[in-house]
């Protein structure tokens, strides 16, 4: 049957360029733990391909014979039938499955191996639709951007304030859900400094697609320095010296912003939205939807629904001067 053969060949040809051009994601692991998964993947892909090709080959060869078979050719087939079904249907899967079962549990155990007691712990709390990030050891609070030291396993504790979310940074590790009423844990480890993107993997409502996260791995010194900087409150302002920044701070405290956001060192202590004490140090805004530039920040403050439809942040009415001052102020919060 020529048509069938062509179809299968076409399918195979389609697969080769598609697979060979893959980069990024879990195929490009940057972590000793994600590495193990990728070993599993290649073993399984290899085995599966062999089985698939064998079966298709058998089918095509059979079809070629079967379109010529006469009724008489069927005699004496019973033994061959039996070998094929028992061999292919029982012996083959049993062998493969035994190997895979051992591999999967072994890999699972080494991935979930506990980190040392001195490992950094990060608490990640899911909200519709952003990530609250806390460092219980140092009391740091930030959002949507997790800094970790590279080359060490880090404990991630996962909780949720509202619905179920799922934490997934494919280059570093598989995903674990954030479930209200439960604390889950996950260990991630970046083998070298770098930035790794991820996003919420469990459907969590309107902006499920806009709930993205960034993991920044840096060497231990930079990480310690980052911790120290993030621990500082926002600088106290003096209206005489920094008139513009002070205006901005007043705009923040005098508008709806303050109901939801905290800036440590000021009276702003809302907790519904991300902590903004060091907002200017973060790379992106709106749970990593847009770059953290002055223009984007302005657009986000004035009309968040245009950037991220459904977000719980309301639009803010500000005069041009107020906005200008507010932007200056926020950009000063390194």
């Amino acid at each position: 049957m020529r048509g069938a053969r062509l179809g299968v060949v076409a399918l195979g040809l389609l697969a080769v360029p598609l697979l060979s051009s893959c980069t990024g994601g879990m195929l490009d692991p940057q972590s000793p733990r994600a590495d193990k998964v990728i070993v599993l993947w290649w073993v399984m892909l290899g085995t599966s391909s062999v089985i698939f090709v064998f079966l298709c080959g058998l089918l095509l060869w059979g079809l070629r014979r079967a379109s010529r078979n006469s009724a008489r050719a069927r005699e004496g087939q019973l033994n061959r039938d039996r070998y094929l079904v028992l061999g292919g249907g029982i012996a083959l899967p049993v062998t493969v499955m035994v190997v895979l079962m051992v591999l999967t549990v072994w890999a699972g155990r080494s991935i979930t191996e506990a980190a040392g007691s001195d490992a950094v712990t990060v608490e990640v709390i899911g909200h519709q639709w952003w990530w609250e990030v806390r460092y219980p050891d140092t009391g740091l609070v930030t959002a949507n951007e997790i800094h970790i030291p590279s080359g060490e396993p880090v404990n991630i504790l996962l909780k949720s304030e509202d619905v179920i979310h799922s934490f997934w940074v494919p280059e570093l590790s598989g995903k674990i859900d954030l479930i209200p009423g439960r604390t889950n844990s996950l260990i991630i480890e970046a083998s070298h400094p770098g930035e790794f993107r991820g996003q919420c993997a469990e459907f969590c409502g309107l902006q499920h697609a806009g709930m993205r996260i960034l993991v920044v791995a840096e060497d231990r010194d930079s990480f310690d320095q980052w911790v120290q900087e993030q621990g500082e409150p926002a600088p106290a302002l003096n209206p005489a010296d920094d008139a513009q920044l002070w205006e901005g701070q007043q705009a923040f405290l005098g508008s709806a912003c303050v109901y939801c956001h905290t800036i440590r060192g000021t009276n702003g202590s809302g907790t519904l939205g991300p902590d903004l004490t060091h907002i200017a140090s973060r790379q992106r805004l709106a749970s990593n939807m847009i770059p953290n530039t002055r223009g984007h920040l302005a657009g986000w403050i004035l009309d968040p629904q245009a950037v991220k439809p459904g977000t719980q942040m309301p639009p803010t009415q500000l005069s041009a001067d107020q906005l200008d001052a507010l932007l200056d102020y926020l950009e000063s919060l390194k």
């Binding site: 089918l59 078979n69 087939q77 039938d81 094929l84 292919g88 249907g89 899967p93 499955m97 895979l100």
Partner: peptide
């Protein structure tokens, strides 16, 4: 989940084998 691959495998190979020795109408 792994175990269920076995009866599925049996069915698949049974069909392929049937076709292999049959007289096929396309």
């Amino acid at each position: 989940s792994f175990t269920i691959a076995i009866p599925s495998g049996i069915s698949i190979f049974a069909w392929v084998t049937t076709i292999y020795g049959g007289r096929v109408r396309f």
